[in-house]
Design a protein around this nucleic acid. Structure first.
Length: 603
DNA sequence: GGCTGCGAGACTCG
DNA sequence: TCACGAGTCTCGCAGCC
C-alpha cells in the first residue's frame, strides 16, 4: 500500500484527485471527550493508497482545515469509520461536513459477533491476520511524538485496516441477512449517537450545589441515627472525623454485627453466605429499629455518593454533561451509557434532592420526552401473535386486567376493561391483586421466569406457582409456542434472529441460554425499534430547523429532546406521530409524550 | 506502608 | 438452577514496589 504524509493543501488536492467515491477515515485526537478534544490529524485510505493529513502542525493546519471545510473530503463519498460516532464528532468539531453515507466497521463487527472484541487492533489480527507483533498500541507510539514517522504509520494503519475490514464484513453481513439492519437502522443511527454525545444535557449547577450540601447533612444525620439505633460506638479523630466500630458500608461487618450484637439470625444463601441487601433488611424491619434506619441511610448514601458527588465532576465548561453512549456493548442491541451513566439516574429522589430535576432546559427552550407505552409487551404480542393479547391492545383495553380476566376467569364485563370507562378505576381497584399477579407474569415471561421465582414473589409453594403459570399458558397458548419455537431454533441453529434480523448466538445450550434467547427476541426488537424512532425524530428536527431540536438523552424506551419553547406543541404532536409510526406491528404502537422545564417534570 | 487491580455485594435504571 | 439487559460505588483481599 502506497503511503504519504500530507502537510500542504496542494499535496491534499493531488491525493484526492486519485481517490474514488469510497474512503476509509480515521482521526487522531488529544482526548476522547467532545468538549476538550483537539484533532492532531486525519488518515485516509482508498484501498490502494493511504495518507495522513497532519493538522497538529501549526504551519499546515490553517490552510488544510480550511480546505477540508470548504471542499469536504466526505462530500459525495461513502466513508467507512471504525467507531463512526467518534470520528463524526471530530469532523463536527473541525466544522467539516460529514458524509451522507456512513459505514461503521465497529458496528458491523458487533452485528457479526455480539460477544467478540470490537477493537480495531483485535479485529485486524482476527479477520485480516495481521501478525500480533506488528500491531502497535497508541500508548506505545505516542511516546515517539505525534509528529514521528512511527505515529504517522500507526495512524495510517488504522485507516488501512478499517478499509480492509469493510471488504471482509460487507459480504458477511449480506450472507447473514444483516444488511437491512446495518444499512437502514444502524448506519442512520450513527448520527443520533454523534448528536447525543455532542449535545449532552444542561445542568442546573446552583441547584446541584445546594442539593449536594443538604444531602451531605442528611447523610451525616442518617449515619448518626443508624449508629444510635444499633448502639454502635464511635471515636472522634484529631480532625473531627468520626470513626465508628463498624463500617455500615461493609456487608461483611454488617453480617457479623447483626448476628452477634443484635442477636438476629440471618437465613443463609444457597452458597452458605449471608446477604444483607434491601429485601433482607425489609423483611427484618419489625425485628429491630436498626434495620429501618440502615435502609434509609443506604438510600441517602447511594443518592449522595453515586450522583450528587459525582455529577459535578462531569460538567463541561459550558455547564453541560456529555456522557458516552456505547452501541457495541450489549448483546441485545440496546445502548449502554457511561461516564457518567445517564440511564440509571434515580426516578425518585428526596424532597431536597431530585437528580432528574437538575437536568434543565436552557432559557427559551423546553424538554420534550417520549416513551413507548408497554413497548416490550407489544413486541411480545407481535412475536407470539397471541390473539387475546393482540385483541386487548387493539381495543385499547388495560392489558394486564384483560389478561387476568381471561386466565383467572374473573368474569368482568368486557366493557369495563377500557381505561376510559367510568367504572374502570373501581374495577381495577377491586381486582388489584389479580391484576398485579398477571402483570408479574406478563413481565416475567419475557425473562423466562420460573415457578421457583414466582413462588418467592408471591409467597406460595412452587407447585402452586407452577399451576398459575400452566393456567396462563393454557389461556395464551401462542406465547408458550413462541418460547418453545425459540428454544428449538437455538438448539437446531445455535442462534436466533429478531424481527429486524439481529442475531444472538449461543455457544452452549442451557436453560439460561434459552431464557436469554427469548428475552433477546423481545428486548432486541425493542432496541431496534428505539433506533428507528430516534432516527425518525432526528429527521424531523433536520426538516424543521426553526424548532432548534436536539436529542439529548436515550434511555431504552425513552427519548428526551430540547426544543425552542414556542414550537413545543407542534414538536409534541409530530414527535408522537414519528415514534408511533417508525415501525408497524400487529398491535398499535403507542407513545406517551410529555414536556417540562426539567427532566423530572418531563412527563 | 502504600498503591493498584479485581471480584463480590449492593444499588440505580429499563 | 432458579428473571433479562446494563454501569458504578464501596469494601476487602492479593500482589507489587
Amino acid at each position: 500500500m502506497d503511503r504519504q504524509v500530507i502537510h500542504t493543501e496542494q499535496e491534499l488536492i493531488e491525493w484526492l484527485k486519485g481517490a474514488g467515491d469510497t474512503l476509509s477515515l480515521d482521526t487522531e485526537t488529544t482526548d476522547l471527550k467532545y468538549y476538550q478534544l483537539e484533532c492532531l490529524g486525519i488518515s485516509l485510505c482508498d484501498g490502494k493508497r493511504a495518507c495522513y493529513i497532519v493538522l497538529g502542525d501549526k504551519d499546515g493546519q490553517v490552510g488544510l482545515v480550511d480546505y477540508l471545510r470548504h471542499r469536504s473530503v466526505c462530500r459525495g463519498r461513502c466513508v467507512a469509520f471504525h467507531n463512526a460516532p467518534f470520528d463524526l464528532k471530530v469532523l463536527h468539531k473541525l466544522g467539516i461536513e460529514p458524509p451522507e453515507n456512513v459505514i461503521c466497521t465497529m458496528t458491523a463487527a458487533h452485528l457479526l459477533d455480539e460477544e467478540g472484541d470490537k477493537g480495531l487492533k483485535d479485529l485486524a489480527i482476527r479477520y485480516l491476520h495481521v501478525p500480533e507483533d506488528q500491531v502497535k498500541h497508541y500508548e506505545e507510539v505516542v511516546t515517539k511524538g505525534v509528529n514521528s514517522t512511527e505515529f504517522y504509520d500507526y495512524a495510517m494503519n488504522d485507516a488501512i485496516w478499517t478499509w480492509q475490514l469493510w471488504q471482509v464484513f460487507k459480504p458477511l453481513l449480506e450472507e447473514q441477512g444483516l444488511s437491512n439492519l446495518f444499512y437502514n437502522i444502524e448506519m442512520p443511527f450513527q448520527f443520533v449517537l454523534r448528536d447525543l454525545e455532542i449535545n449532552g444535557v444542561q445542568i442546573d449547577q446552583p441547584a446541584l450545589v445546594t442539593a449536594r450540601e443538604s444531602l451531605r447533612k442528611e447523610l451525616m444525620q442518617a449515619c448518626l441515627d443508624t449508629w444510635e439505633a444499633g448502639g454502635i460506638k464511635y471515636d472522634v479523630a484529631l480532625l473531627g472525623e468520626l470513626i465508628p466500630e463498624i463500617n455500615l458500608n461493609s456487608p461483611k461487618q454488617l453480617v457479623e454485627f447483626i448476628q452477634t450484637r443484635l442477636g438476629v439470625r440471618l437465613t443463609p444463601e444457597e452458597d452458605g453466605g449471608y446477604s444483607v441487601d434491601k429485601s433482607v433488611l425489609e423483611s427484618l424491619k419489625d425485628r429491630h429499629p436498626f434495620f429501618g434506619k440502615l435502609l434509609y441511610y443506604r438510600s441517602v448514601e447511594k443518592l449522595a455518593n453515586s450522583f450528587f458527588e459525582k455529577l459535578p465532576e462531569c460538567i463541561d465548561g459550558d455547564g453541560r454533561i456529555r456522557c458516552h453512549f456505547n452501541n457495541t456493548v450489549t448483546v441485545t442491541g440496546r445502548l449502554s451509557s457511561s461516564d457518567p451513566n445517564m440511564q440509571q439516574l434515580p426516578k425518585k429522589g428526596t424532597a431536597l434532592a431530585n437528580v432528574r430535576a437538575l437536568i434543565i432546559a436552557p432559557p427559551g427552550k423546553v424538554l420534550v420526552g417520549g416513551d413507548w407505552s408497554g413497548q416490550e409487551l407489544r413486541v411480545l404480542a407481535e412475536v407470539s401473535r397471541d390473539l387475546t393479547m393482540i385483541d386487548a391492545f387493539i381495543r385499547g383495553q388495560d392489558v394486564h386486567l384483560t389478561l387476568a380476566n381471561g386466565f383467572m376467569d374473573l368474569g368482568i364485563n368486557e366493557k369495563l376493561l377500557y381505561e376510559s370507562h367510568p367504572q374502570f378505576q373501581e374495577i381495577r381497584k377491586k381486582y388489584k391483586d389479580q391484576r398485579d399477579k398477571c402483570k408479574t407474569i406478563n413481565f416475567g415471561i419475557p425473562y423466562g421466569k420460573t415457578a421457583y421465582g414466582f413462588a418467592l414473589d408471591w409467597n406460595v409453594t412452587e407447585a402452586e406457582a407452577q399451576a398459575e403459570i400452566d393456567k396462563y399458558f393454557s389461556k395464551f397458548p401462542r406465547i408458550q409456542e413462541a418460547i418453545q419455537g425459540c428454544t428449538r431454533r437455538v438448539k437446531s441453529r445455535g442462534f436466533v434472529a429478531n424481527l429486524f434480523g439481529r442475531r444472538r448466538r449461543f455457544k452452549h445450550l442451557s436453560k439460561r441460554a434459552f431464557r436469554q434467547a427469548f428475552n433477546f427476541l423481545i428486548q432486541g426488537a425493542s432496541a431496534d425499534m428505539f433506533k428507528l424512532g430516534a432516527v425518525a425524530v432526528r429527521k424531523l428536527f433536520l426538516a424543521h430547523e426553526e424548532w432548534g431540536g436536539k436529542i439529548i438523552l436515550a434511555v431504552h424506551d425513552e427519548i428526551v429532546t430540547e426544543v425552542n419553547e414556542q414550537y413545543r406543541d407542534v414538536v409534541m404532536k409530530d414527535m408522537k406521530y414519528a415514534l408511533e409510526h417508525c415501525v408497524s406491528l400487529c398491535v398499535p404502537v403507542v407513545c406517551d409524550i410529555g414536556w417540562g422545564h426539567n427532566y423530572a417534570d418531563c412527563k
